[in-house]
């Protein structure tokens, strides 16, 4: 058993995490839950970057990318939460199917 086989299960779990997030993103109708699904997918990507850094031996670079990812993630979440609250104040619901004012 070497280092690569030690981190190999991480690859499977990264895909499983991404699958959970993507599945929720596809089936949910609640706008706040869409943000949660995005967060779960981001966790998978964060883990993938760290495992990539470990396997390639470029851990410092991987950490720099993860810090950048976290900064962008938090801004995306805050902006998305602001949009959801604004939409809720406007329409009175979190149901994503009600957002069809621009539907042709």
């Amino acid at each position: 058993m070497n280092l690569v086989s030690l981190v190999m299960p991480f690859g499977v779990f990264v895909a499983l995490l991404a699958a959970v997030g993507l599945y929720c993103l596809i089936v949910t109708r609640d706008m706040l839950r869409v943000i949660l699904a995005l967060e779960v997918i981001t966790k998978a990507v964060t883990l993938l970057l760290i495992v990539g850094g470990l396997v390639s031996g470029h851990m410092a670079l991987a950490q720099a990318f993860v810090i950048t990812l976290i900064v962008i993630e938090v801004v995306v979440i805050v902006a998305a939460a602001g949009i959801v609250i604004a939409v809720y104040k406007h329409t009175g619901t979190l149901d994503i199917r009600r957002l069809r004012n621009l539907k042709g």
Binding site: K43, Q63, I67, I70, E73
Partner: peptide, 12 residues
Amino acid sequence: APWAAVFELSVC
């Protein structure tokens, strides 16, 4: 990856 872990804990 301690630096990334600290950011993850405090921010996320």
